[in-house]
Each structure stands twice: as C-alpha cells, then as structure tokens.
Simulated scan of single mutants.
Amino acid sequence: MLLAIDTSAGTSVALVDDDGRVVAERSTPDTRRHAEVIGPYLHEVVAAASPTALTGVVAGIGPGPYTGLRVGIAAARAFAFGRGIPLHAVASHDAVALALVQGGAVAGRFAVVTDARRREVAVTVYGAALPLPHTIVPAHLVARIDWVPEQGVVAHEVSEISAASLGRVALARLAATLPEVDPRPLYLRAPDVTLSTPKRVS
C-alpha cells in the first residue's frame, strides 16, 4: 500500500492499495493552505491503514510553485524516513495524464496544463498509452496569452492533482521496473531571490 502526497496545485493525500484502489483520500483545491492542511490530512488518511501495511511514500514533484511543492515533498520525505520505507517521486502532470488515459478521455497526443501563476501555464505533452502515457514534450512554461495547442494535440487544463492517481503512476512504474525519478522538485522558473555577491573587505 502506498501513501501519496501532492501539493503542486491544491493539497491531496491518498492511500492506494497494490491494485490501485483508493483506501482513503483527502484533498482541497486551495492553493494557499498547504502547510495548514497537510498534517491533518496525513493523520486522517494514514489512520485508515495499519502501520505495517504501508510499503512506500509517493511525492508529487511538480511542476508547481516553490512554496507549495516544498511542503508536500518535505512531508513525504519526513514520513518515509520516519517509517523507514522507500520514497518514490512522480511528476504531478503524469498523474493527470494517466487518469485521462484510463478514463478514456484522450487518444493520441494530448497536453496536461496547470496554472503556473504570473500569467503563465505549465504544459506537458503526452502520447496516450498504457500502462503509462509517454512524454513527448517535457514540462515547460508558456505565457497564457500565447498558449495554443499544436495541431492534433488536445489540451486538458486542471486545477487539482489527485494523489490517488499519483499513487497509481508509482505502482505502474514499479511494476514495469522503471528507474526511480529524481525526487527534486520540478521548478520551471528561477527563484525570485538570489544570493548577493559578498563585498570584498580590504
């Protein structure tokens, strides 16, 4: 059983069993209360399973804003470390892509789009396939006013990422023995704050 956490948009926490069924899930689309809700959500969701049933933790790594992503990834890292179980990283757009393919909503090429703020969107282009959609164009930023899907690409803009779908991606990757994804957050924009150059003291 996997505990999955995503804070790339709102906040979502879920438990999925080895067949991908949802055991428990809590979520909110609120993009400003990650730190306030992550603790209670974890407590409520984890209570639905015995401690020995958990075999891994899944962290959604974005793309997403800096503040939101670091809350979820830090929580996933801490929980995995505390329980002594593996941490698996999954790109958040992959969760949306798999849900769309499994639901029969897409075929061929399609794009997952999320709000990146500052009048920009984050876009990843996929090819519909199972057990996992394949990435055609990795996640990148586009000015919202300029965003027009290429011919033949169907765009799906979402405001929430399901942690349950995130867990299903991790299960599919584990079943296919794919390499682990780097758990570093997927920031598409340089940080606003940079370190200043120290002045030389004569």
Rank of each mutant, 00 (worst) to 15 (best):
V201L: 13
L171H: 00
V154D: 03
G152S: 09
Q151H: 14
G39A: 14
V158M: 04
V16C: 03
A170W: 01
G72V: 08
A95P: 11
Q102G: 08
D17L: 10
D30M: 08
F81Q: 15
L100Q: 03
V201G: 11
T31V: 12
P185E: 04
Q102K: 06
D19H: 15
P40D: 08
T11N: 08
I5P: 00
H93E: 02
V16P: 01
R26H: 10
V22E: 08
D30V: 14
L130H: 06
I136N: 10
P65I: 11
G167I: 06
L2T: 05
I38D: 01
T52V: 13
R117S: 05
R109Y: 04
Q151V: 11
T55D: 12
R189H: 11
T11H: 07
S202V: 11
G20L: 04
A122V: 12
A49S: 14
V37C: 00
R184T: 15
P65T: 08
G56Q: 02
T197F: 13
V113F: 02
A91D: 13
D18S: 12
L171V: 09
P40H: 09
V125P: 00
V169K: 05
H88P: 08
D182N: 02
G167K: 05
T114Y: 02
V169S: 00
G20S: 06
S165R: 03
V142W: 03
D192C: 00
P149A: 01
H93F: 06
V201N: 12
I61F: 07
T135H: 04
L2R: 05
E25L: 12
T197G: 10
G20V: 07
G56L: 11
G20I: 01
P179D: 10
A78C: 13
V23F: 14
A48V: 13
P65N: 09
A99T: 02
A107L: 11
T55V: 13
S196R: 15
V121K: 01
I73V: 11
T11Q: 07
P65R: 10
A170R: 01
A24T: 04
H134S: 15
D146H: 04
A75Q: 01
T28L: 06
H34V: 08
T135S: 09
G152Y: 11
T114D: 02
V137L: 12
L42S: 04
Y187C: 07
L69D: 03
G10F: 08
R144D: 15
A164N: 06
A164K: 01
R189V: 14
P63H: 04
V201K: 15
A14D: 05
T197W: 12
V181R: 00
L130D: 03
T31Q: 15
A78I: 07
L178C: 12
Y126N: 01
G167F: 12
V137F: 11
G127P: 05
F81S: 13
S162E: 05
L42G: 04
D17T: 14
A163G: 11
A107Q: 14
G127S: 15
R200N: 10
V112L: 02
P179S: 06
L166M: 07
I38K: 05
A49M: 15
T114I: 13
T31R: 09
A163Y: 10
V57L: 09
Q151W: 08
